[in-house]
Computed example of a mutant assay.
Amino acid sequence: MLSIVRGGPRILLLKGNEAAMKSLVSSKFRCTEHTLEGAFDSAGEGQSVILFRGGPRGDDRRFLMAAAAADEILALFLNSGYEAWPLSVRIMPRLLFFRVFGEKERVIGQIARDYSAERGRLRSVLRVARKGSIAVCFTAKPLNRSLSIADMMDEVLHVEGVSFEKLLNSLRSRALWYFSEGLENRQWNELEIRIYDSWGRYLDHYERLRAVLESLEAGMILGEGWGKDYAHILMAVKIYRLRLFTFLPAQTIKEILMGLEYGADGSRLVDFDLFSGKEKISWGGIGGKSKTRGDRGSIGTDLRAQLFSQLFPEDRKHLEEWERRILRRRTGEGRTDPSERK
């Protein structure tokens, strides 16, 4: 699937007995202390970032990240003893994250016009919010993970006069249309991926591929199933194929596939072919991007390292486990080339 818009953490600015407030929140919710950038990097949707007014400033200023919604924290204070009551509470703008790809200004400009939004900069989300203010932040990164400040674009839209829930639902209903506005020619690519494996571990490689596509949020799988290809006249080869609907160029998908073809030791695990319509996408033009600029194996090894650097740590771990399992199953089978099409 593809996530295009989601909510962000709530930022609270509290004044009062910092030690008592911090102790109370930490006793009820899972909390960690961070710098501002660290808190922003770690906080996800439904969590809160708390800043205590009157504390140290500069690099020593610490933010408390709590795994709880803002209303849960405020209810906790309201029901607590007087000592932990905040003297004042200021709420920063609500945050929404929107993913863009390609021509970002076309997307941001259209959203700004549709919602009569005021343009601002990323640092403006730390200003005290006007009533009902919502900050829409933009990133090119997938939204299925925590986002760092470095992942965010500097452009921010401030929307007023609409509730957070209504704006979120409205953007979600239009998200795919807005996202497509930024694409070259405003078109998605429908590609076919064919899996060849002379050891017959098709579904292992399918699961590896699906895990990567989901981790990168690279598009949507529209269909899949078994089929046949003909490496030579009258010689049928069993394949597993899937149709991918993606906003990424075909060459980028080819690089992902080549990175999945090779294991950590450089061994060939599988053969992926990529088609756009009837045209087979070749790996020949990819060599210029490789550090080694060598043969297919060295290019694939480089692309594997590039791919793994973009994945969640848990996804990298699962892929490595799949690789080891695949190689163990080959022990004693004799064949060494998965592209051997029988």
Rank of each mutant, 00 (worst) to 15 (best):
residue 170 S to F: 02
residue 170 S to P: 02
residue 171 L to P: 03
residue 171 L to C: 07
residue 171 L to A: 06
residue 171 L to D: 02
residue 172 R to I: 02
residue 172 R to C: 06
residue 172 R to F: 01
residue 173 S to P: 00
residue 173 S to G: 07
residue 174 R to H: 08
residue 174 R to Y: 00
residue 175 A to G: 10
residue 175 A to I: 01
residue 175 A to R: 08
residue 175 A to S: 15
residue 177 W to M: 08
residue 177 W to P: 00
residue 177 W to D: 14
residue 178 Y to E: 05
residue 180 S to M: 02
residue 180 S to G: 09
residue 181 E to K: 09
residue 181 E to C: 08
residue 182 G to Q: 01
residue 182 G to I: 03
residue 182 G to P: 04
residue 183 L to V: 05
residue 184 E to N: 00
residue 185 N to Q: 09
residue 185 N to M: 06
residue 185 N to T: 03
residue 185 N to G: 05
residue 186 R to P: 01
residue 187 Q to A: 10
residue 187 Q to E: 12
residue 187 Q to P: 00
residue 187 Q to W: 00
residue 188 W to S: 03
residue 189 N to C: 00
residue 189 N to Q: 08
residue 190 E to D: 07
residue 190 E to V: 07
residue 190 E to R: 09
residue 190 E to L: 05
residue 190 E to T: 09
residue 191 L to A: 04
residue 191 L to P: 01
residue 191 L to F: 06
residue 191 L to D: 02
residue 192 E to N: 03
residue 192 E to T: 11
residue 192 E to D: 02
residue 193 I to H: 03
residue 194 R to C: 01
residue 195 I to C: 03
residue 195 I to E: 01
residue 195 I to W: 04
residue 195 I to G: 02
residue 195 I to A: 05
residue 196 Y to F: 13
residue 196 Y to N: 10
residue 196 Y to E: 07
residue 197 D to P: 09
residue 197 D to S: 14
residue 197 D to Y: 06
residue 197 D to C: 12
residue 198 S to H: 09
residue 198 S to R: 12
residue 198 S to I: 09
residue 199 W to M: 10
residue 199 W to F: 14
residue 200 G to S: 12
residue 200 G to L: 13
residue 201 R to L: 13
residue 201 R to I: 04
residue 203 L to M: 15
residue 203 L to V: 09
residue 204 D to C: 11
residue 204 D to F: 14
residue 204 D to N: 14
residue 204 D to R: 11
residue 204 D to H: 14
residue 204 D to Y: 13
residue 204 D to V: 14
residue 204 D to P: 04
residue 205 H to N: 13
residue 205 H to G: 05
residue 206 Y to G: 13
residue 207 E to Q: 12
residue 208 R to H: 04
residue 209 L to Q: 01
residue 209 L to H: 02
residue 210 R to G: 06
residue 210 R to N: 11
residue 210 R to Y: 08
residue 211 A to V: 04
residue 211 A to Y: 04
residue 213 L to T: 06
residue 213 L to I: 15
residue 213 L to F: 03
residue 214 E to G: 08
residue 214 E to Y: 10
residue 214 E to D: 13
residue 215 S to H: 13
residue 215 S to K: 09
residue 216 L to S: 00
residue 216 L to C: 05
residue 217 E to M: 12
residue 218 A to L: 12
residue 219 G to W: 00
residue 219 G to C: 04
residue 220 M to R: 09
residue 220 M to G: 01
residue 221 I to K: 06
residue 221 I to L: 12
residue 221 I to D: 08
residue 221 I to T: 10
residue 222 L to H: 02
residue 222 L to T: 13
residue 223 G to V: 05
residue 225 G to V: 09
residue 226 W to L: 10
residue 226 W to A: 08
residue 226 W to G: 04
residue 226 W to T: 10
residue 227 G to Y: 04
residue 227 G to F: 04
residue 228 K to F: 08
residue 229 D to A: 15
residue 229 D to Y: 01
residue 229 D to L: 11
residue 230 Y to V: 11
residue 230 Y to M: 05
residue 230 Y to W: 14
residue 232 H to I: 12
residue 233 I to F: 14
residue 233 I to S: 12
residue 234 L to M: 12
residue 235 M to L: 15
residue 235 M to A: 15
residue 236 A to W: 10
residue 237 V to P: 01
residue 237 V to R: 14
residue 237 V to Y: 01
residue 237 V to W: 00
residue 237 V to T: 15
residue 237 V to Q: 13
